[in-house]
């Protein structure tokens, strides 16, 4: 049985009379890619802030790597991207060097390693001259410093172009499969999250409305899509076999498929 990496048990939080988290129960297991879904203001970022010790909660327990009392120390095992936190007057490499020292990572080549992963190893300009996509990638590189056991990514695809979004997905899957990292990721792009995560939690109004796995989602499917060369013939065969056609939907290509066909690159 896989180890519980992060557990929130009955977490409550309010700002004055405004309750932002209400009896939040979440369990993220080792090896999971956990997708956190919810609209703006639902409480996703607050959950991340609670996990990272940036927000006090009024009730319940937070366990990181099974430990309640040593959460601050256990946080060293977490890499995270929640906002863009870099000094504008330094280069991307210098910013990561700063965080390498701060995180107590002795291996100086670590900065090169993570810059290579996000393909920023050849960029020499100052952070203030970075595009939004480059800033996001640098944020991911920072999260990867020191090869953390857990990775928290709050909307890592924000501001990225379709190729950038696909790159982040591939990167997350690679980190999970090859390095065994547990990943908690939030995104507004549900199709994207569905392609990436193994388990999901839907946050609504400050509480977890539902938790389910990718398998659960698959079994919810009520219809099967098949591609055939001759649609009329297929319908005739089905009718002759006594299978009633209840619904016929003409399927068009997705914008994503169309985009990648046109400009190149890949989604999977």
């Amino acid at each position: 049985m896989s180890e519980t990496m992060i557990a929130l048990k009955g977490i409550n939080k309010s700002y004055g009379k405004h309750q932002v988290l209400q009896d939040v129960n979440l369990q993220i297991n080792e090896g999971d890619i956990y997708g956190l879904v919810g609209k703006n203001g639902a409480g996703k970022t607050t959950i991340f802030k609670v996990i990272l010790g940036l927000s006090e909660y009024q009730g319940g327990d937070l366990l990181i790597c099974g430990d309640k009392d040593k959460a601050a120390e256990e946080r060293q095992k977490i890499g995270f991207l929640v906002g863009i936190n870099f000094f504008s007057y330094m280069t991307g490499r210098q910013n990561l060097e700063y965080y390498r020292i701060l995180k107590g990572i002795k291996d100086k080549s670590e900065v090169d390693r993570v810059l290579k992963i996000v393909e920023l190893d050849n960029v020499k300009s100052k952070f203030k001259n970075y595009s939004l996509g480059m800033k996001q990638r640098l944020g991911i590189a920072n999260a990867l410093l020191g090869n953390p056991k857990i990775l928290i990514l709050d909307e890592p695809t924000n501001g990225l172009d379709p190729q950038g979004i696909a790159d982040v997905r591939k990167l997350v899957q690679k980190l999970n499969e090859e390095y065994g990292m547990t990943v908690v990721i939030s995104s507004h792009i549900l199709g994207e999250l569905q392609n990436t995560a193994h388990r999901f939690g839907i946050i609504n109004g400050g509480s977890v409305a539902k938790e389910f796995s990718a398998e659960d989602l698959a079994t919810e499917e009520k219809s099967v899509r098949i591609s055939v060369a001759d649609l009329e013939k297929a319908k005739e065969v089905l009718t002759n076999a006594g299978i009633e056609i209840l619904n016929e939907v003409q399927e068009t290509r997705s914008l994503e498929d169309y985009y990648f066909d046109l400009v190149g690159g890949e989604t999977k």
Partner: peptide, 18 residues
């Protein structure tokens, strides 16, 4: 000033600094 602008203090706390 730079620290507040870049909010790096938050990263330090998130990375385990008390």
């Amino acid at each position: 000033s730079d620290d507040f602008r870049a909010k790096t203090m938050q990263v330090a706390i998130g990375a385990g600094t008390k």
